[in-house]
Structures are given as C-alpha cells and as structure tokens.
C-alpha cells in the first residue's frame, strides 16, 4: 500500500485511464506545458502528447461545450476546470447540454464526460475564488456528482467517473491536493453512489463530504473525549445520494448533524437534512442540525474567513445540541 498525496492519486488515475483507453483525453487551462495549475496533470503531456493532453484558451464555456460534443461523438474527455469558481461561465453547457442530452434525444446520445477541479474555500482568496458550489451541480438531474475526501477515493472515483457513460462532475479541493493517504497498489474502482462510514459510532451521525470530512473526524474525536460516540458518514457521491447508508446510520444513532462548507440555503446538506427529517422522522430523537458555511461571501481577512467556515467547535456544539447536552 503506497502513501500518495491527493494530487498524486488523481494523477495516477488519469495516467492509467489515458493508457487504458485512447478515447480518454484531458483538456483545460494549464493542464499541459504547465503540468496543471495544481500539478494534478504533471507529466501527462510529456507521456501522451498534445493530441490527448490539451492546453485550452481561457474560455470555460467554449472548451466545456467542446468536451460535451466530443463525448457525444464517442470520446471520453476529462475537462479540468482550474477551479469550480470559473466553471460558472460554463454552467449552460453542463446544465443545458451535458445533463439533458440523453433525455432530450430520447436516449439516443450519451455524454460520457468528466468535469473536475477544485471546489470550496481555500485560504486568503476572497469571495470569487473561495466558495463551495456543489449545490449548482447536485441540483441537476442527468449529472452525477462526486466529492472524494481521501486520496484513495480521489483515485477510485475518478477512474469510475471516466468509465461512466453519464456526465460526472468531480469536486476536489485546493487544500486537499497535498493531503496524504494510503492508496492500495493494484487498480481499483470506487463505485459512484456509495457512501462510507469513516468512523463507527452509536450516539449521533455526522454526515459530510469532501474536505470538511477532516474537520468532522476531529470533532468526532473531541466528542469521544466528552463521552459521546459519533458515527461519521462520508457521502463521497452527492448525486445519486446513497440514501440507504444515510438512513441506516441515522436509524442506529437517532440523531443527525449534516456538515458542509457551502452556503446553507438550497444546499446538498439542507436536502440531506430534509431527507433524514422526512424518512427517519419516527426514529429521530432531536431535530436534524445543519453546520454550513456562513451565509456570506468569503472575506479575505484570515480570521474572518476561518469564522465563515465549519470548524471543530461548531460541529461539536451542533452534535451536543442534538444530544441535548448543551452547555
């Protein structure tokens, strides 16, 4: 078992899939000569050449749409967005083209494409470069959305996404690219649509995904010190949601906190909280709690930007509220 960084795990997945299937190609800003804005594509241009690893102009709508057409014509493009912030310029091509092509054509066309890049707050980047936009994608039928939090999942989910016949949006995070974790040596896939219990527990379920997993695991540790057994469920895929895993955990603990770094209104987390409230109502011992990013644009000042995000005290406090152990 090798220890890889999150970026190395993504790189390995891309490398293997490019080698495995010549319909796979990578395009995006700085993915080639520069080796990737975050070095995810390091060495791939040298290995696979400019026909398959393509530097694009800074035209997110254009190259995202081009990827959609290439996928309709049978290729399997991986489109790297330098960040999800910039992907808003390409929203139409993802929502109106990629996601709907199969349906509008009565099932005649597949769009096997992966859109991927960092999402969520980083550090000192202010409002336009530091936001969690997954709700935009998770809202749309026809898309699949994955949000791996570990190097192993980053590897296994990216490989699954590339082989999937539907458009998949993948959420990475600038702050996670250097994160190290064990990745099994042989080839493996992580199935899309399957959550994972990261820490078993019996008193409260903490549901999260992507980078906040690490905050939530710390919070679970702190709760253990305080005498509470928290189960941590990592959704890993945001669409389709692994509802069975969510309900199985909540029906065991009878209490639930959902943690996200995105804004609270109309978010993946608020939807999960609603599903739990509706489908586990008889088993809940307390109303479902939501810990989200604060409902403000991200400020530049470091103390303020940290205050805008979920942290261990916020998660612990929310867990104690559903445990009726406040104060």
């Amino acid at each position: 078992m090798a220890v890889l960084t999150y970026r190395e795990a993504l790189n390995r997945a891309l490398d293997e899939e490019l080698a495995r299937d010549d319909r796979v190609l990578l395009m995006g800003e700085e993915v080639g000569e520069y080796d990737g804005a975050y070095k995810v594509s390091k060495g791939l241009l040298a290995k696979y050449g400019p026909n398959r690893v393509l530097d694009t102009p800074i035209t997110e709508l254009g190259f995202t749409g081009l990827g959609v057409g290439a996928a309709m014509a049978g290729l399997r493009p991986v489109v790297e967005w330098m960040t999800h912030n910039f992907a808003l310029l390409a929203l139409d091509q993802v929502v109106n083209e990629a996601a709907k092509m199969r349906y509008m054509s009565g099932g005649q066309f597949s769009v096997p494409i992966v859109f991927r890049g960092p999402n969520g707050p980083a550090e000192y980047l202010a409002s336009q470069h530091s936001q969690a936009l997954e709700s935009y994608w998770a809202h749309v039928p026809g898309l699949k959305v994955v949000a791996p939090a570990t190097p192993a999942d980053a590897y296994g989910l990216l490989k699954s996404a590339i082989r999937d016949d539907d458009p998949v949006v993948m959420l990475e995070a600038e702050m996670m690219y250097g994160l190290k974790g064990e990745v099994p040596d042989g080839e493996f896939l992580v199935p899309i649509g399957k959550a994972e219990v990261r820490r078993p527990g019996s008193d409260v379920t903490l549901i999260t995904y992507s980078k906040p997993l690490w905050t939530v695991l710390e919070a679970a540790e702190e709760l253990a010190r305080q005498g509470f057994s928290a189960e941590v469920l990592d959704l890993r895929t945001l669409r389709p949601l692994d509802e069975e895993a969510i309900y199985a955990s909540v029906r065991k603990t009878n209490r639930c906190v959902v943690v996200t770094e995105s804004w609270p209104q109309a978010s993946v987390a608020s939807h999960v909280a609603w599903l739990v409230s509706r489908n586990c109502f008889d088993r809940l011992d307390a109303p479902v709690e939501l810990v989200s990013g604060e409902d403000v644009p991200m400020p530049y000042n470091h103390a303020l930007e940290l205050a805008a995000q979920p942290n261990v005290p916020k998660v612990v406090a929310a867990a104690r509220r559903v445990l009726y152990a406040e104060g």
Binding site: G65, L66, M72, L75, Q93
Partner: peptide, 20 residues
C-alpha cells in the same frame, strides 16, 4: 445531433464533434 434551444449553445458542442 440536435436541435438545441439555447441560442448559440450548439456551436461549442459542434466544435467538439469536429474535435472528435
């Protein structure tokens, strides 16, 4: 390959087909 309801949105898609 369609039939696209968003004005001009088919043009990048068509570029992608030509790319393939």
């Amino acid at each position: 390959l369609g039939g696209n309801g968003i004005v001009g949105a088919q043009i990048p898609v068509a570029a992608g087909v030509a790319f393939a």
